[in-house]
């Protein structure tokens, strides 16, 4: 009989230490983490991890930072369920469990030398930020860069300091909008698709990367197609309940695909005809 190989369980998390916490909005916090083992997370922008608070549970969370040399990584988390409420109660120095990274990633290599159009809706900016920051870290490797960001209202805008930085940069175009204005807001008002009339792209060399709430995708894809961007250069990151992360538990299925393995980043041409995708 085989001896049990204890270290082999794919459900065993690694310990990570919270090294910094930043309150982003009323309901979102940014957690900077470092694996206790000292090894880097080893993710590529677009991938996610399974985050554990032992005794509470586990949930899929997208990595919000670009791969960093100092080995830290960031998770931006909305306080919305049991696990996320628990981690919002953590303090610097607390330990959490991490499995992963899991899933597919944004086309960081394929888009090299090409233009990028990032479209983020609400907390869709969290996963997209990993790619945006990667591009800004390797700015010379990419062509024109446009970032469009839409939020429901001004108070739900996250990463405010960075948004301001992006707005001030000469080497990218940054535009944002809110669905509904609020106190002090002087920017664009309207759904994110209204920003498309303000931009110009060279469609054949543009990769459009879209992350947002489920309802957003259809409309943004129509705009991207109207700009002439080829379907195979449109990428989406889809949210589902990725419970196990290893293509077994069944919760994240979109038709025959497992979002935890075949996604969360999909090329539009791979899913446009799937009934359950968009």
């Amino acid at each position: 009989m085989n001896q049990p190989m204890l270290e082999d369980s794919p459900y065993l998390p690694k310990w990570a230490e919270i090294t910094r916490i930043e309150q982003l909005t009323e309901s979102e916090k940014l957690f900077e983490l470092r694996l206790v083992s000292g090894e880097p997370l080893g993710h590529t922008p677009g991938q996610f991890v399974e985050l554990s608070v032992m005794g509470i549970g586990e949930a899929p969370i997208s990595v919000s930072s670009a791969p960093a040399e100092n080995g830290v990584f960031e998770l931006a988390i909305r306080k919305i369920g049991n696990l996320t409420t628990a981690i919002h109660g953590s303090v610097t120095g607390d330990r959490v469990g991490i499995r992963g990274p899991f899933g597919t990633h944004f086309p960081v290599e394929e888009a090299k030398g090409k233009d990028l159009l990032f479209v983020a809706g609400g907390i869709g900016l969290i996963p997209l930020r990993s790619f945006i920051r990667f591009v800004l870290d390797h700015r010379d490797d990419y062509g024109e860069v446009i970032v469009l960001f839409g939020a429901k209202n001004p108070s739900e805008r996250i990463f405010l300091y960075e948004l301001e930085q992006w707005g001030n940069r000469e080497d990218i175009v940054y535009l944002d909008s809110v669905d509904k204005s609020g106190p002090g807001w002087q920017g664009n008002v309207g759904v994110i698709t209204t920003l498309f009339s303000k931009i110009h792209v060279d469609p054949s060399r543009t990769f459009c990367i879209v992350v947002g709430p489920p309802v957003m995708y259809r409309f943004v894809i129509l705009e991207a197609k109207a700009k002439g961007i080829p379907d195979r250069q449109i990428f989406l990151s889809l949210e589902r309940k990725m419970k196990c992360g290893i293509g077994k538990c069944g919760h994240c299925q979109i038709n025959h695909l497992y979002v935890c393995q075949d996604g969360p980043v999909f090329r539009y041409t791979d899913i446009f005809d799937l009934e359950e995708a968009l």
């Binding site: 032992m54 949930a59 909305r78 369920g81 709430p213 489920p214 949210e239 309940k241």
Partner: peptide, 26 residues
């Protein structure tokens, strides 16, 4: 002390494909 357990689930159950943001994909 505690345990992380797995238990049978079923895709016919109402919340099987629901996520924390309130979206239920089936």
């Amino acid at each position: 002390h505690g345990e992380r357990i797995r238990r049978w689930d079923g895709c016919l159950l109402q919340d099987f494909a629901a996520v924390a943001t309130g979206e239920n994909f089936r």
